[in-house]
Design a protein around this nucleic acid. Structure first.
Lengths: 250, 250
DNA sequence: GAGTGGTCTAGACCACAAC
DNA sequence: TTGTGGTCTAGACCACTCC
């Protein structure tokens, strides 16, 4: 009966008056237990039925919490076996800027210098946006240099449809995404392609690095919730300061 | 009543005798509709209630199908507004090898040549595996060269715990993951860090490319379902043949 | 046979957006 | 007010793994 003896019960306190969904409160509690060592790699999590009885939840709610952590790569489930912790804890490396930084940290960018601001078109810029935008649609072409910790970190090239108004003065003080949001862009989804290439002489100069210099490239295509293009970004990062982390569940 | 007039009904045929879950049959049908142009970017999807009535499904089942496509970056949902298509279709670029290739295509690797096979330890190899493995645990050290389409594509360095038996003859003919699976490794999850660096002279020679050469680096840490280490891979890819794609929902 | 996760149903109430 | 997605309940039956 009940759970097999080696399963670990997580200390969970749910607040049903909170606006935070119950499944998210639960997944955060489990994640915290993994973080602080109460649950260690290889440990078995209490099974769903026991968990739901103990916490007074319906099973789909508990499943949703666990599923969130499976997708994040912290847990693994096997039918007939149970749910286990696979990852020790999240390594937060100060050197690393995550995928998110370009969008999520938009609120207060460390320091961004506007290099140039011109007008172009997708065909002139060599961008193929087939279904989303005609090749002769006018675009802003921005080149910016991002600094962090007193060092140049990345050269960011942004293409933004001309229906947005981008004022150089505003660009200096505010993040690009703030400006776009203000003008009604409901940013919904970004597709990113990560690769590598050598920096040319000008780029290495801007990044204040000797050549030859290997850089991480990221091409970002950002759409709003109507599927309209908000931005194409082509960014060049110093490889010693930027990596991308992903998890893959088999 | 019913749906707002501009919503698109997808042609779906569900097979309740199939072992494929209903939610997955539905999500595949919607994805196919996006692929073949029946649903275009900006189109609104039929709402959940209408969809569930029409198909005779419960709402959570339809939600699960739609959620799958939201995570894949094809759809966006907004409360009070509806569900919309954001992405034209998935660009399948032959040049691109996805994140998955290292694990999923393990069945039939195009061609992999074993360069060296030695023994080392985490501390000697400069790998820190803190909780998962003591620094003096013996490891296989493999260096392999992967070919595709008659060209060298990647240099793969693998560290595998000595508890696995890796026979050079078997390694030549079989994929590494096949061998590990055969010996009981239930591969569960991989964490990957993508970056870039310059290839050294030997590496450029193996890849048959002139220097300086910028390469994509991928460090893979693979765990089994008990949280035990199965493999650490440090791979160096030709940047002109390898990129990584991810999506980011805001 | 017992324990476990995987799928599915049939509802309920709420929060947000548009009219 | 109406349509929409977001959350949650309380069950059901099935498939897989281990004993």
């Amino acid at each position: 009966m009940a759970t097999r003896s080696d399963a670990v019960q997580v200390d969970v306190r749910l607040d049903r008056t909170s606006p935070v969904p119950l499944y998210h409160q639960l997944s955060q509690a489990i994640e915290a237990a993994i973080d602080n060592g109460a649950l260690r790699p290889g440990d078995r999590l209490e099974n769903e039925l026991s968990l739901t009885e103990r916490l007074g939840l319906a099973r789909p709610t508990a499943r949703q919490a666990i599923q969130e952590l499976v997708r994040k790569g912290l847990l693994v489930r096997r039918r007939g076996l149970g749910t286990q912790v696979v990852r020790p804890a999240i390594h937060r490396d100060a050197r690393l800027t995550s995928l998110y930084s370009d969008l999520a940290s938009g609120g207060r960018e460390p320091d961004t210098r506007l290099l140039t601001h011109d007008t172009t078109t997708p065909s002139a810029a060599g961008i193929d946006l087939g279904d989303v935008m005609a090749p002769d649609t006018p675009l802003h072409l921005l080149r910016r240099l991002r600094w962090a910790d007193g060092e140049p970190l990345a050269i960011m090239t942004n293409y933004v449809p001309a229906r947005f108004e981008l004022d150089d003065a505003a660009l200096a003080g505010r993040s690009l995404y703030d400006l776009l949001r203000e003008q009604g862009a409901q940013i919904a989804i970004a597709h990113q392609t990560i690769g590598a290439r050598l920096a040319d002489a000008e780029e290495a100069g801007l990044l204040e690095q000797p050549r030859p210099l290997a850089c991480v490239t990221a091409e970002l295509i950002v759409y709003d919730d109507a599927g309209a293009l908000v931005e194409v970004g082509r960014h060049l990062y110093r490889a010693d300061r930027y990596t991308v982390q992903t998890s893959l569940v088999v």
